[in-house]
Simulated assay, not measured.
Amino acid sequence: MRALAGVAIALVIGLSGSVVLAQSGDAARGQRLFNQQCRACHTLDKGGASTTGPNLHGVFGRKAGTVQGFAFSEAMINSQIVWNDKTMADYCADPRNMVPGTSMVFNGVKNTEQLADLVAYLKQATQ
């Protein structure tokens, strides 16, 4: 019974890692990070303009490279990424590693706590 419980806990942790990421982050800190590092290139408002980067409203659950009117790199269009907590965190940590050939020049957020904060904020702000 203990072994079964351990397996169940491992499965829950493995399957819900992205949920834990967003739930563990602080959206207020994530907003500050977004404003410092992301806002120069991305907007979040529904119907907002794409600028240097695409508008991120409604990004979670959307296939990468599909915002109308934005000129994505072929690498992003062909990436087959669907944005969720994990893919967003992985991309924000190291965009060029996750999508070689991406046109995003951002070096990434290396601090895992800041990544959790950023994802929590994006989940909240892009709905």
Rank of each mutant, 00 (worst) to 15 (best):
N111A: 08
A22C: 04
M88S: 08
V105R: 14
K63Y: 01
L44W: 04
C92Y: 04
Y121W: 14
L15M: 10
R2F: 14
L115H: 08
N107M: 12
E113L: 13
Y91H: 07
R39F: 03
T52W: 07
A125R: 09
S18I: 00
T52K: 14
D90L: 08
A75Q: 02
L44A: 11
S50Y: 13
A125Q: 08
M104D: 07
H42I: 04
N78F: 08
K86L: 11
P100R: 02
L44I: 10
A93G: 06
Q23A: 14
V20I: 11
M98L: 15
V105L: 15
S79C: 09
F70T: 01
D85S: 15
D94K: 07
V20R: 10
S18M: 05
G53D: 07
L21N: 08
Q23C: 03
L56R: 02
N111R: 12
T102A: 08
F70G: 01
N111L: 09
S103N: 15
C41T: 03
N84M: 04
S79K: 01
R62I: 04
G69N: 07
Q124E: 13
G58Y: 03
D90G: 01
A71E: 13
P54Q: 05
N35I: 00
P100V: 07
V59H: 00
H57D: 06
P95D: 07
L56N: 03
L118V: 14
H57Y: 15
E74F: 08
L56F: 05
Q37W: 11
F34D: 02
R39V: 03
T43C: 03
A49P: 11
M98S: 03
N107D: 12
N107E: 14
L21E: 06
R39W: 02
G65I: 13
V67K: 05
A28W: 12
K63E: 02
R96Y: 01
A27L: 06
E113V: 13
T66N: 06
K123R: 15
A28N: 09
D94W: 02
L4N: 01
G17L: 04
L4A: 13
S24P: 01
M98W: 03
S24F: 12
V7T: 05
R29H: 09
S16H: 05
G108A: 05
G53Q: 07
L118S: 05
M98F: 11
L15Y: 07
S18T: 03
A116P: 02
N55S: 07
S50A: 15
S79Y: 04
